[in-house]
Design a protein around this nucleic acid. Structure first.
Lengths: 259, 259
DNA sequence: TCGGCCAAAAATGAATGCAAACCTAAGGGA
DNA sequence: TCCCTTAGGTTTGCATTCATTTTTGGCCGA
């Protein structure tokens, strides 16, 4: 199949996927920027896996994905190697790719790394953040507090994530941002959620921690903020683990991954 | 070329590399464990680049490397994609791979991330380290002190690196170890060195910092150790930058990358 | 001499081909 | 009946081929 033929082809591939796969890939229209089929496949496949469209431990159906994406095996296999290096899938020699199964132990480890990265981000942010960027975070914090008072979990999650992301961005460190994004994806893949709704005490605690975070950031107290952020993630992890152990609402997908 | 033909082929490829490339790849004999040609290529190519055998900004000669490794372009290109995702090379669409050029700014950022990772490792190590592992680090510390007194830079470097590696290992966190190793490789690629020999004051300071590190680790004071380790890396970076600015001994490859 | 234009050559990105490894399942022997 | 063997189809890993793009080198004109 030539590139021109691919270009003119409709978005929907002819071969259906098995039941485990979603009915629709996000039928992203072909990019106007023609470049780099490999990159597009990589991005789409990563999203596909991070979003949990393949069961953990499931085989990654090379042929089916090729047909679905409308590409040959070569760029797909390149993408698989990259995803394996990112820790999203395992490659078994001569036995293909499987979605990586993330155990309880590994989730703990990933949370700790996230904590370490956020701690670093907080420290660096204290050194570099502008007053404007701080003010924006402060606004988000107050908005989040409003959601907290109204018990609006969804809005709270959104603000919370925005705050953490902005702290990382304020660190102004490219490799840190990239690494942080990578780990966030891996954790998201685990469909892990603190589910504050089931634990109002933790919610209040998280809110208080965020007060501390904002305070330390206002004072540009790097080491202190670093410590708070790490403990913040630790507490979140612990709350999430407790909930997991209690087996509350086991299957329900949660709106976000962070408290 | 079939696999059997490759297997029976001698270690040395017939086509010489241009002058910029080293005369000899480490002519590693074909592994007895036959599995995964791609993995072997990836490992060897990464080492090849990390060791600085290709000039920064230089084109990665796809064809020549294929011939040198005795493989086709497919597995090599897979390896290139992975190395690009690791940040060792850049892939320019339709214009091939180039060894990533690491600027002063990025070195600073990488140092900071290393500092954050070591800070995390120290904190986790305080929670998990066994008395035996601590004792081993203490021994290394004393040995390092001996090298310091004798002004044995090489021995000092080796002990220093071993100590930091053992702290990371003691953290018992797989993703952390992997990430740490990756960043260490990227920094090593920059052939960056604090070169303590040119800065005796910094050497003494580093030694004192290591005393603090050991002390905090002995007391299992996680947050404190975390802070010390981050500042330790910061100071190292600063010393290295000063030296760089002073243009001392510019071209000489240094024995290690850490103080 | 220098700069721009064009054709040849090389390199890249992706598709296809092919041998080996794996999985499945039917058949035979204990 | 159960386990082992084994033939077939399927999948994987890599090599090779093909279509584009980029680069190179030469030629012409100013």
């Amino acid at each position: 199949m030539t590139r021109a033929e691919r270009e003119s082809e409709g978005a929907d591939g002819p071969i259906p996927l098995p039941a485990r796969l979603p009915v629709e890939l996000p039928a992203k229209p072909r990019e106007n920027l023609v470049h780099s089929l490999h990159d597009e496949v990589l991005t789409r496949l990563r999203e596909f896996i991070v979003e949990g469209n393949l069961a953990p431990g499931a085989r990654v159906p090379e042929r089916l994905l090729c047909e679905r994406f409308g590409i040959s095996r070569t760029p797909l296999r390149e993408a698989l190697k990259v995803l394996a290096s990112e820790g999203l899938i395992d490659l078994l020699p001569n036995r293909g790719a499987r979605v990586r199964r993330i155990g309880e132990q590994e989730i703990v480890e990933l949370f700790d790394v996230m904590g370490g990265l956020e701690a670093l981000a907080g420290r660096l942010a204290c050194e570099r953040i502008t007053d404007e960027a701080y003010a924006a975070i402060e606004r988000l914090h107050h908005e989040m507090y409003g959601h907290y008072l109204r018990r609006d979990l969804h809005g709270y999650f959104a603000c919370n994530q925005a705050i953490h992301d902005r702290i990382v961005a304020a660190a102004g460190n490219g490799p840190l941002s990239a690494t942080y994004a990578g780990f966030a994806g891996r954790l998201r893949r685990a469909r892990y959620s603190a589910n504050l709704d089931a634990n109002r005490d933790r919610w209040g605690e998280a809110m208080r921690e965020h007060e501390e975070i904002l305070d330390a950031l206002r004072r540009r107290a790097g080491a202190e903020l670093s410590d708070i952020l790490f403990r913040h993630l630790r507490n979140k992890r612990k709350a999430a683990a407790d909930r997991e152990a209690a087996q509350l609402v086991p299957g329900e997908p949660s709106p976000a991954d962070r408290d």
